[in-house]
Write a protein that binds this DNA or RNA. Structure first.
Ligand code: SF4
Ligand code: SF4
Lengths: 146, 146
DNA sequence: ATAATAAAAGACTAAAATGTCTTTTATTAT
DNA sequence: ATAATAAAAGACATTTTAGTCTTTTATTAT
């Protein structure tokens, strides 16, 4: 497994996808199209998006012309909100070697280097906004497909 | 979960433990003592060490006064050898968003930042030698216990 | 109002990670 | 040689993660 769980990878990619497909115009995009757009198993992604919807990270409406979209507030959220919602905060504060009490007083051998990496991840996810890549995704410079 | 699997966390901590307990003197240390020393479930750790032993990352002998130890070559190995043996190479080369073809030509939105983090992890694990912390572990400045 | 549409909800299955227990094999001290 | 010791091997059990399928609820166009 990578840094994130599979669930979280799908979550991030789908939210990027929804963002770039619905920014500006008030359109919605359906689960089938999203699943296709990010190469993910559709029913599994549905579960994930239901959860993100309940948590207010994505917006959705049922019925004809319904689907998922992002309001302007959601577009401004940092990526870390998705990660925290799906995988929790372990990646920001957790311990690389599985110790409970990470501290400067009682550090594990990799303490300093790990802190550095953790901070880098923290920074990346907090400074990156969900809507940030819309233009590049639109013109095909970035990819969300396997 | 953290950066590594639980199996890998135990692996790293146990190898550190064996290293500092057997460096210099030609002693061995038994599974019970190791499990105690790193707060891990003994039978599970036994599995892990059997695997590391088969792969030549730790050494062992059976019978009275038997146990695990590290020869001088093993002490010089980089941490990355343990991680690669247990968790594979995904953490060094894998994709943060689960895409198959990470490339400069077809990058995902987090390409550059991820590359940076991945390189930092790579560096940390390749430059850190297994026997590197023996002195600090000996005098209690570093901890391997939950 | 009704039918069509699309997400929400919930029950279910499959696979992988984590953890336990029992038996076997190798080593060594006697 | 024998008995004691300690790891190796392998069969299980449990939990978590990943993935599927069916039914229900909300929305909208007619
Ligand atoms: S730096 Fe070391 S002690 Fe601190 S959380 Fe990471 S592994 Fe634990
Ligand atoms: S940087 Fe982006 S494209 Fe490259 S491996 Fe990471 S997630 Fe994939």
């Amino acid at each position: 497994m990578g840094i994130f769980s599979k669930t979280c990878e799908y979550a991030i990619r789908s939210v990027f996808f929804i963002a770039h497909r619905t920014a500006g115009q008030s359109g919605r995009v359906g689960i089938k199209e999203i699943a296709l757009g990010i190469d993910s198993p559709e029913p599994f992604l549905a579960k994930i998006l239901q959860d993100l919807s309940r948590r207010g990270i994505v917006q959705s409406t049922k019925g004809p012309n319904g689907g998922f979209y992002l309001d302007s507030a959601s577009l401004e959220r940092p990526l870390s909100d998705i990660v925290a919602a799906v995988d929790g905060n372990d990646i920001f504060y957790g311990c690389g070697l599985g110790l409970k009490q990470c501290s400067e007083i009682n550090p594990c051998p990799l303490h300093n280097e790990f802190k550095d990496i953790r901070n880098k991840i923290h920074l990346m996810l907090h400074e990156t906004k969900i809507g940030e890549f819309n233009a590049e995704l639109m013109n095909g410079m970035l990819s969300l497909k396997k």
